[in-house]
């Protein structure tokens, strides 16, 4: 049974429009708060630390792998083609933690290793961040 061969695309919000625009150019951005100098990645406009308004700022996207899961089955046609793939949680140098797909050989991934953000073309609408080996 084929259900939705096309993988889902991200859904922009007012607070994340700048992020997804940058993603289309291949640039990764994080939220930064000028008031308390913290970085965040909530997609909501205000800093979760001090509630001042944040702005999107360039990040090198370098992170350390905290854990990963190797997905070995999927009922979703769009993901079947990618099996097995590793969903990876990694902590960015600036602090925020993100869970994204690791685009590479699943056998090459290990806890503690460094990865960085890249973007995969997600069709005409959006680009999606993935982790790649550093």
């Amino acid at each position: 049974m084929a259900i939705d061969e096309k993988r889902p695309t991200p859904i922009r919000t007012d607070g994340t429009a700048d992020f997804f625009e940058a993603a289309k150019r291949g640039e990764f951005m994080l939220q930064h708060c000028r008031n308390c100098d913290q970085c965040s990645f909530t997609g909501y406009k205000y800093c979760p630390n001090c509630y001042a308004k944040t702005e999107w700022r360039h990040s090198d996207g370098i992170a350390t792998v905290k854990s990963f899961a190797i997905v070995t089955e999927s009922s979703h046609g769009g993901f079947k083609k990618l099996l097995p793939y590793a969903v990876t949680t990694a902590v960015l140098g600036e602090g925020p933690t993100l869970s994204l797909r690791y685009d590479g050989e699943v056998g090459n991934i290990a806890i503690g290793q460094n990865v960085k953000i890249a973007f995969e073309d997600n069709g005409p609408d959006e680009a999606t961040p993935v982790w790649v080996a550093l």
């Binding site: 259900i3 939705d4 993988r7 889902p8 695309t9 991200p10 859904i11 922009r12 919000t13 607070g15 994340t16 992020f19 990645f41 909530t42 997609g43 909501y44 905290k66 854990s67 990963f68 899961a69 190797i70 997905v71 999927s74 979703h76 993901f79 990618l82 793939y85 969903v87 990876t88 949680t89 993100l98 869970s99 994204l100 797909r101 997600n122 959006e126 999606t128 961040p129 993935v130």
Partner: peptide, 26 residues
């Protein structure tokens, strides 16, 4: 197939985080 959430949350679907098993496996 369903992508739950919008904005940053909606990165889960394209990332292939489609069920709780992925998160609990990590």
């Amino acid at each position: 197939a369903i992508n739950v959430g919008t904005g940053i949350e909606s990165l889960n679907g394209p990332s292939g985080i489609l069920n709780a098993a992925t998160q609990f496996a990590m």
